[in-house]
Design a protein around this nucleic acid. Structure first.
Lengths: 173, 173
DNA sequence: ACGGGCATGTAACTGGTTACATGATTCA
DNA sequence: TGAATCATGTAACCAGTTACATGCCCGT
Protein backbone atom coordinates (compact mmCIF):
# COMPACT_ATOMS: atom_id res chain seq x y z
CA UNK A 1 0.00 0.00 0.00
CA UNK A 2 2.96 2.29 -0.59
CA UNK A 3 1.49 4.34 -3.41
CA UNK A 4 -1.83 4.90 -1.69
CA UNK A 5 -0.24 6.23 1.47
CA UNK A 6 2.45 8.20 -0.30
CA UNK A 7 -0.16 10.12 -2.26
CA UNK A 8 -2.07 10.71 0.95
CA UNK A 9 1.11 12.05 2.55
CA UNK A 10 1.72 14.45 -0.34
CA UNK A 11 -1.86 15.68 -0.10
CA UNK A 12 -1.44 16.35 3.61
CA UNK A 13 0.70 19.38 2.73
CA UNK A 14 -2.12 20.85 0.66
CA UNK A 15 -4.40 20.14 -2.29
CA UNK A 16 -2.74 19.10 -5.54
CA UNK A 17 -4.06 18.11 -8.92
CA UNK A 18 -3.46 14.63 -10.33
CA UNK A 19 -0.46 15.25 -12.52
CA UNK A 20 1.29 17.24 -9.80
CA UNK A 21 1.20 14.21 -7.55
CA UNK A 22 3.27 12.24 -9.99
CA UNK A 23 6.03 14.84 -10.14
CA UNK A 24 6.00 15.38 -6.39
CA UNK A 25 6.22 11.69 -5.67
CA UNK A 26 9.20 11.30 -7.97
CA UNK A 27 10.87 14.44 -6.70
CA UNK A 28 10.51 13.25 -3.11
CA UNK A 29 12.30 9.98 -3.81
CA UNK A 30 14.77 11.21 -6.40
CA UNK A 31 13.22 9.38 -9.33
CA UNK A 32 14.28 6.04 -7.88
CA UNK A 33 10.75 4.70 -8.21
CA UNK A 34 9.06 6.23 -11.24
CA UNK A 35 5.31 6.35 -11.07
CA UNK A 36 3.10 5.83 -14.09
CA UNK A 37 0.71 8.79 -14.32
CA UNK A 38 -2.19 6.49 -14.96
CA UNK A 39 -1.58 4.85 -11.62
CA UNK A 40 -1.95 8.19 -9.89
CA UNK A 41 -5.46 8.52 -11.23
CA UNK A 42 -6.51 4.94 -10.52
CA UNK A 43 -5.17 5.27 -7.00
CA UNK A 44 -6.86 8.62 -6.48
CA UNK A 45 -10.12 7.09 -7.64
CA UNK A 46 -9.78 4.36 -5.04
CA UNK A 47 -8.84 6.84 -2.33
CA UNK A 48 -11.93 8.89 -3.16
CA UNK A 49 -14.08 5.77 -3.19
CA UNK A 50 -12.80 5.04 0.33
CA UNK A 51 -13.46 8.59 1.52
CA UNK A 52 -9.79 9.41 2.15
CA UNK A 53 -9.63 12.22 -0.38
CA UNK A 54 -12.20 14.49 -1.95
CA UNK A 55 -12.11 16.49 -5.15
CA UNK A 56 -13.15 19.94 -6.18
CA UNK A 57 -12.60 21.94 -9.31
CA UNK A 58 -10.51 25.06 -9.01
CA UNK A 59 -9.85 27.25 -12.01
CA UNK A 60 -10.60 24.48 -14.45
CA UNK A 61 -8.28 22.01 -12.76
CA UNK A 62 -9.50 19.18 -10.63
CA UNK A 63 -7.70 19.25 -7.31
CA UNK A 64 -7.57 16.53 -4.71
CA UNK A 65 -7.77 17.27 -1.02
CA UNK A 66 -7.18 14.96 1.94
CA UNK A 67 -10.15 14.35 4.24
CA UNK A 68 -10.23 13.86 7.99
CA UNK A 69 -10.49 10.11 7.43
CA UNK A 70 -7.48 10.41 5.18
CA UNK A 71 -5.46 12.19 7.86
CA UNK A 72 -6.42 9.51 10.34
CA UNK A 73 -5.36 6.79 7.94
CA UNK A 74 -2.06 8.55 7.30
CA UNK A 75 -1.33 8.84 11.01
CA UNK A 76 -2.17 5.17 11.33
CA UNK A 77 0.34 4.39 8.57
CA UNK A 78 3.09 6.33 10.34
CA UNK A 79 2.23 4.84 13.70
CA UNK A 80 2.01 1.21 12.62
CA UNK A 81 5.39 -0.44 12.16
CA UNK A 82 5.85 -3.00 9.43
CA UNK A 83 5.74 -6.44 10.94
CA UNK A 84 7.86 -9.34 9.80
CA UNK A 85 4.72 -11.46 9.74
CA UNK A 86 3.15 -9.11 7.21
CA UNK A 87 6.31 -8.90 5.11
CA UNK A 88 6.05 -10.18 1.57
CA UNK A 89 7.79 -13.40 0.65
CA UNK A 90 11.47 -12.91 -0.06
CA UNK A 91 11.65 -13.83 -3.72
CA UNK A 92 15.40 -14.32 -3.90
CA UNK A 93 15.40 -16.53 -0.82
CA UNK A 94 12.63 -18.65 -2.30
CA UNK A 95 14.45 -18.88 -5.58
CA UNK A 96 17.58 -20.10 -3.88
CA UNK A 97 15.79 -22.56 -1.67
CA UNK A 98 14.13 -24.20 -4.62
CA UNK A 99 17.20 -23.97 -6.79
CA UNK A 100 18.99 -25.92 -4.05
CA UNK A 101 16.40 -28.67 -4.35
CA UNK A 102 16.62 -28.61 -8.10
CA UNK A 103 20.34 -29.34 -8.13
CA UNK A 104 23.74 -27.75 -7.50
CA UNK A 105 23.92 -26.43 -11.05
CA UNK A 106 20.82 -24.33 -10.54
CA UNK A 107 22.17 -22.92 -7.27
CA UNK A 108 25.45 -21.93 -8.80
CA UNK A 109 23.68 -20.24 -11.68
CA UNK A 110 21.35 -18.26 -9.44
CA UNK A 111 24.13 -17.15 -7.12
CA UNK A 112 26.51 -16.21 -9.88
CA UNK A 113 24.08 -14.29 -12.07
CA UNK A 114 22.40 -12.57 -9.12
CA UNK A 115 25.70 -11.60 -7.51
CA UNK A 116 26.84 -10.00 -10.75
CA UNK A 117 23.70 -7.90 -11.12
CA UNK A 118 23.52 -7.01 -7.44
CA UNK A 119 27.17 -6.06 -7.38
CA UNK A 120 26.79 -3.75 -10.34
CA UNK A 121 23.74 -2.26 -8.70
CA UNK A 122 25.68 -1.57 -5.51
CA UNK A 123 28.46 0.10 -7.46
CA UNK A 124 26.01 2.39 -9.14
CA UNK A 125 24.17 3.24 -5.94
CA UNK A 126 27.34 4.14 -4.06
CA UNK A 127 28.63 6.15 -6.99
CA UNK A 128 25.41 8.14 -7.05
CA UNK A 129 25.50 8.69 -3.30
CA UNK A 130 29.13 9.76 -3.23
CA UNK A 131 28.51 12.13 -6.09
CA UNK A 132 25.70 13.87 -4.25
CA UNK A 133 26.31 17.52 -3.49
CA UNK A 134 25.50 19.53 -0.42
CA UNK A 135 22.14 20.51 -1.81
CA UNK A 136 20.98 16.92 -2.07
CA UNK A 137 17.47 16.22 -0.90
CA UNK A 138 17.18 14.45 2.45
CA UNK A 139 14.54 11.97 1.35
CA UNK A 140 16.53 11.01 -1.67
CA UNK A 141 19.64 10.32 0.42
CA UNK A 142 17.65 8.20 2.84
CA UNK A 143 16.19 6.14 0.02
CA UNK A 144 19.63 5.68 -1.45
CA UNK A 145 21.07 4.51 1.83
CA UNK A 146 18.20 2.13 2.45
CA UNK A 147 18.85 0.57 -0.93
CA UNK A 148 22.59 0.44 -0.35
CA UNK A 149 22.20 -1.29 3.00
CA UNK A 150 19.74 -3.75 1.54
CA UNK A 151 21.99 -4.46 -1.40
CA UNK A 152 25.04 -5.02 0.77
CA UNK A 153 23.09 -7.45 2.93
CA UNK A 154 22.03 -9.32 -0.17
CA UNK A 155 25.59 -9.66 -1.38
CA UNK A 156 26.79 -10.95 1.99
CA UNK A 157 23.95 -13.44 2.00
CA UNK A 158 24.69 -14.66 -1.51
CA UNK A 159 28.30 -15.30 -0.50
CA UNK A 160 27.07 -17.19 2.53
CA UNK A 161 24.77 -19.29 0.35
CA UNK A 162 27.52 -20.11 -2.10
CA UNK A 163 29.73 -21.34 0.74
CA UNK A 164 27.06 -23.34 2.46
CA UNK A 165 25.71 -24.96 -0.66
CA UNK A 166 29.04 -25.80 -2.23
CA UNK A 167 29.28 -29.55 -2.20
CA UNK A 168 25.81 -30.22 -0.86
CA UNK A 169 24.54 -33.35 -2.61
CA UNK A 170 21.58 -33.05 -4.97
CA UNK A 171 18.11 -33.17 -3.41
CA UNK A 172 19.61 -32.82 0.03
CA UNK A 173 17.46 -31.70 2.94
CA UNK B 1 5.59 -14.15 -8.77
CA UNK B 2 7.09 -16.09 -5.91
CA UNK B 3 4.23 -18.45 -5.28
CA UNK B 4 3.75 -19.32 -8.92
CA UNK B 5 7.36 -20.28 -9.44
CA UNK B 6 7.75 -22.00 -6.10
CA UNK B 7 4.90 -24.35 -6.91
CA UNK B 8 6.43 -24.98 -10.30
CA UNK B 9 9.73 -25.82 -8.61
CA UNK B 10 8.06 -28.29 -6.25
CA UNK B 11 6.32 -29.95 -9.18
CA UNK B 12 9.63 -30.33 -11.00
CA UNK B 13 10.52 -33.11 -8.57
CA UNK B 14 7.40 -35.06 -9.51
CA UNK B 15 3.61 -34.82 -9.61
CA UNK B 16 1.85 -33.77 -6.43
CA UNK B 17 -1.75 -33.13 -5.55
CA UNK B 18 -2.96 -29.70 -4.49
CA UNK B 19 -2.88 -30.03 -0.75
CA UNK B 20 0.54 -31.65 -0.83
CA UNK B 21 1.94 -28.53 -2.43
CA UNK B 22 0.94 -26.46 0.56
CA UNK B 23 2.74 -28.73 3.01
CA UNK B 24 5.81 -29.06 0.82
CA UNK B 25 6.05 -25.31 0.34
CA UNK B 26 5.89 -24.68 4.06
CA UNK B 27 8.28 -27.52 4.85
CA UNK B 28 10.80 -26.18 2.34
CA UNK B 29 10.89 -22.77 3.98
CA UNK B 30 10.38 -23.82 7.58
CA UNK B 31 6.89 -22.38 7.96
CA UNK B 32 8.28 -18.86 7.72
CA UNK B 33 5.79 -17.97 5.00
CA UNK B 34 2.58 -19.89 5.55
CA UNK B 35 0.53 -20.46 2.44
CA UNK B 36 -3.24 -20.36 2.40
CA UNK B 37 -4.48 -23.60 0.83
CA UNK B 38 -6.96 -21.74 -1.28
CA UNK B 39 -4.12 -19.86 -2.88
CA UNK B 40 -2.52 -23.10 -3.97
CA UNK B 41 -5.60 -23.94 -5.97
CA UNK B 42 -6.10 -20.50 -7.48
CA UNK B 43 -2.43 -20.44 -8.47
CA UNK B 44 -2.59 -23.95 -9.90
CA UNK B 45 -5.62 -22.92 -11.93
CA UNK B 46 -3.68 -19.99 -13.36
CA UNK B 47 -0.64 -22.17 -14.05
CA UNK B 48 -2.84 -24.64 -15.89
CA UNK B 49 -4.51 -21.82 -17.83
CA UNK B 50 -1.03 -20.74 -18.93
CA UNK B 51 -0.01 -24.26 -19.91
CA UNK B 52 2.71 -24.58 -17.30
CA UNK B 53 1.11 -27.50 -15.48
CA UNK B 54 -1.37 -30.17 -16.47
CA UNK B 55 -3.63 -32.36 -14.34
CA UNK B 56 -4.65 -35.96 -14.34
CA UNK B 57 -6.61 -38.03 -11.89
CA UNK B 58 -4.77 -40.86 -10.17
CA UNK B 59 -6.55 -43.11 -7.69
CA UNK B 60 -9.27 -40.58 -7.06
CA UNK B 61 -6.85 -37.76 -6.38
CA UNK B 62 -6.18 -34.98 -8.83
CA UNK B 63 -2.46 -34.65 -9.35
CA UNK B 64 -0.62 -31.78 -10.97
CA UNK B 65 2.32 -32.33 -13.28
CA UNK B 66 4.75 -29.79 -14.72
CA UNK B 67 4.80 -29.41 -18.51
CA UNK B 68 7.71 -28.71 -20.81
CA UNK B 69 6.65 -25.07 -20.96
CA UNK B 70 6.64 -25.13 -17.17
CA UNK B 71 10.18 -26.47 -17.03
CA UNK B 72 11.28 -23.78 -19.45
CA UNK B 73 9.64 -21.09 -17.35
CA UNK B 74 11.26 -22.46 -14.20
CA UNK B 75 14.71 -22.42 -15.78
CA UNK B 76 14.02 -18.88 -16.91
CA UNK B 77 13.18 -17.96 -13.31
CA UNK B 78 16.44 -19.42 -12.02
CA UNK B 79 18.46 -17.84 -14.81
CA UNK B 80 17.00 -14.35 -14.57
CA UNK B 81 18.41 -12.31 -11.67
CA UNK B 82 16.15 -9.89 -9.85
CA UNK B 83 16.89 -6.38 -11.04
CA UNK B 84 16.84 -3.32 -8.85
CA UNK B 85 14.73 -1.61 -11.47
CA UNK B 86 12.04 -4.28 -11.11
CA UNK B 87 12.23 -4.26 -7.31
CA UNK B 88 9.07 -3.22 -5.51
CA UNK B 89 8.98 0.13 -3.76
CA UNK B 90 10.62 0.04 -0.35
CA UNK B 91 7.66 0.76 1.91
CA UNK B 92 9.63 1.68 5.01
CA UNK B 93 11.82 4.06 3.05
CA UNK B 94 8.76 5.74 1.57
CA UNK B 95 7.16 5.97 4.97
CA UNK B 96 10.20 7.67 6.41
CA UNK B 97 10.63 10.03 3.50
CA UNK B 98 7.09 11.26 3.81
CA UNK B 99 7.17 11.27 7.58
CA UNK B 100 10.17 13.59 7.27
CA UNK B 101 8.08 15.98 5.18
CA UNK B 102 5.20 15.70 7.59
CA UNK B 103 7.27 16.89 10.54
CA UNK B 104 9.94 15.78 13.02
CA UNK B 105 7.35 14.26 15.34
CA UNK B 106 6.22 11.84 12.68
CA UNK B 107 9.80 10.81 11.91
CA UNK B 108 10.60 10.14 15.51
CA UNK B 109 7.48 8.06 15.90
CA UNK B 110 8.16 5.96 12.83
CA UNK B 111 11.79 5.36 13.75
CA UNK B 112 11.07 4.52 17.35
CA UNK B 113 8.14 2.18 16.82
CA UNK B 114 9.74 0.48 13.84
CA UNK B 115 13.06 0.02 15.59
CA UNK B 116 11.32 -1.64 18.52
CA UNK B 117 9.46 -4.12 16.36
CA UNK B 118 12.41 -4.79 14.08
CA UNK B 119 14.72 -5.29 17.05
CA UNK B 120 12.40 -7.80 18.64
CA UNK B 121 12.12 -9.54 15.31
CA UNK B 122 15.90 -9.78 15.02
CA UNK B 123 16.15 -11.24 18.51
CA UNK B 124 13.65 -13.90 17.67
CA UNK B 125 15.26 -14.76 14.36
CA UNK B 126 18.72 -15.14 15.84
CA UNK B 127 17.37 -17.18 18.74
CA UNK B 128 15.70 -19.55 16.30
CA UNK B 129 18.83 -19.84 14.19
CA UNK B 130 21.13 -20.45 17.15
CA UNK B 131 18.75 -23.07 18.49
CA UNK B 132 18.82 -25.01 15.25
CA UNK B 133 20.22 -28.51 15.52
CA UNK B 134 22.49 -30.40 13.18
CA UNK B 135 19.53 -31.87 11.34
CA UNK B 136 18.19 -28.46 10.33
CA UNK B 137 17.00 -28.12 6.79
CA UNK B 138 19.30 -26.18 4.48
CA UNK B 139 16.58 -24.12 2.85
CA UNK B 140 15.19 -23.10 6.18
CA UNK B 141 18.59 -21.92 7.40
CA UNK B 142 19.12 -19.92 4.25
CA UNK B 143 15.76 -18.24 4.61
CA UNK B 144 16.54 -17.45 8.21
CA UNK B 145 19.85 -15.91 7.34
CA UNK B 146 18.40 -13.86 4.54
CA UNK B 147 15.86 -12.46 6.95
CA UNK B 148 18.49 -11.82 9.61
CA UNK B 149 20.74 -9.95 7.21
CA UNK B 150 17.85 -7.89 5.94
CA UNK B 151 16.70 -7.11 9.45
CA UNK B 152 20.15 -6.04 10.59
CA UNK B 153 20.46 -3.76 7.59
CA UNK B 154 17.11 -2.22 8.45
CA UNK B 155 18.17 -1.52 12.01
CA UNK B 156 21.41 0.10 10.90
CA UNK B 157 19.47 2.22 8.45
CA UNK B 158 16.94 3.30 11.05
CA UNK B 159 19.76 4.44 13.32
CA UNK B 160 21.26 6.35 10.42
CA UNK B 161 17.90 8.01 9.74
CA UNK B 162 17.45 9.01 13.34
CA UNK B 163 20.86 10.69 13.36
CA UNK B 164 20.44 12.43 10.06
CA UNK B 165 16.95 13.69 10.71
CA UNK B 166 17.53 14.86 14.25
CA UNK B 167 17.29 18.61 14.16
CA UNK B 168 16.25 18.91 10.53
CA UNK B 169 13.72 21.74 10.35
CA UNK B 170 10.14 20.95 9.43
CA UNK B 171 9.32 20.70 5.73
CA UNK B 172 12.98 20.72 4.84
CA UNK B 173 14.08 19.55 1.40
C1' DA C 1 2.94 23.34 -38.30
C1' DC C 2 4.59 20.33 -34.94
C1' DG C 3 6.73 18.08 -31.12
C1' DG C 4 6.97 17.81 -26.21
C1' DG C 5 5.41 18.33 -21.79
C1' DC C 6 1.22 19.13 -19.01
C1' DA C 7 -3.10 17.15 -17.81
C1' DT C 8 -7.04 13.72 -17.20
C1' DG C 9 -8.64 9.76 -17.40
C1' DT C 10 -10.36 4.49 -18.56
C1' DA C 11 -10.15 -0.51 -19.56
C1' DA C 12 -7.98 -4.42 -18.80
C1' DC C 13 -5.09 -7.54 -16.58
C1' DT C 14 -1.80 -9.63 -12.97
C1' DG C 15 -0.71 -12.05 -8.88
C1' DG C 16 -1.69 -12.24 -4.08
C1' DT C 17 -4.97 -13.13 -0.54
C1' DT C 18 -8.90 -14.44 2.05
C1' DA C 19 -13.48 -16.21 3.30
C1' DC C 20 -16.36 -19.63 2.56
C1' DA C 21 -18.54 -24.27 1.29
C1' DT C 22 -17.99 -29.04 1.13
C1' DG C 23 -16.75 -33.63 2.13
C1' DA C 24 -13.49 -37.59 3.42
C1' DT C 25 -10.57 -39.74 6.75
C1' DT C 26 -8.41 -40.48 11.13
C1' DC C 27 -8.03 -40.88 15.84
C1' DA C 28 -9.08 -40.09 20.64
C1' DT D 1 -19.37 -38.98 18.67
C1' DG D 2 -16.74 -35.25 17.68
C1' DA D 3 -12.54 -32.62 16.72
C1' DA D 4 -8.59 -32.31 13.76
C1' DT D 5 -6.46 -32.91 9.61
C1' DC D 6 -6.59 -33.94 4.75
C1' DA D 7 -8.47 -32.49 0.50
C1' DT D 8 -10.73 -29.67 -3.30
C1' DG D 9 -12.31 -25.98 -4.80
C1' DT D 10 -14.90 -21.02 -5.88
C1' DA D 11 -16.13 -16.14 -5.49
C1' DA D 12 -14.68 -11.98 -4.44
C1' DC D 13 -11.59 -8.42 -3.59
C1' DC D 14 -7.14 -5.74 -3.46
C1' DA D 15 -3.35 -2.93 -4.97
C1' DG D 16 -0.21 -2.42 -8.62
C1' DT D 17 0.58 -1.73 -13.31
C1' DT D 18 0.29 -0.67 -18.15
C1' DA D 19 -1.51 0.61 -22.64
C1' DC D 20 -4.25 3.58 -24.67
C1' DA D 21 -7.21 7.78 -25.92
C1' DT D 22 -7.75 12.50 -25.60
C1' DG D 23 -6.79 17.28 -25.54
C1' DC D 24 -4.46 21.61 -24.10
C1' DC D 25 -0.65 24.86 -24.31
C1' DC D 26 3.89 26.58 -25.35
C1' DG D 27 8.08 27.28 -27.70
C1' DT D 28 10.54 26.58 -32.05
Amino acid sequence: MSVRHSLLAILEAGPVHGYGLKSRFEAATGDVWPLNVGQVYTTLGRLERDGLVRTDVEEGQKTYRITEAGRTELRRWFATPLSRAAAPRHELALKLVFAARSGPGAVAEVVRSQAAVTGRSLDELTRVRDGAGEDAEVGWLLVLEALIGQTEAEIRWLRCCAERLAGVPEHAG
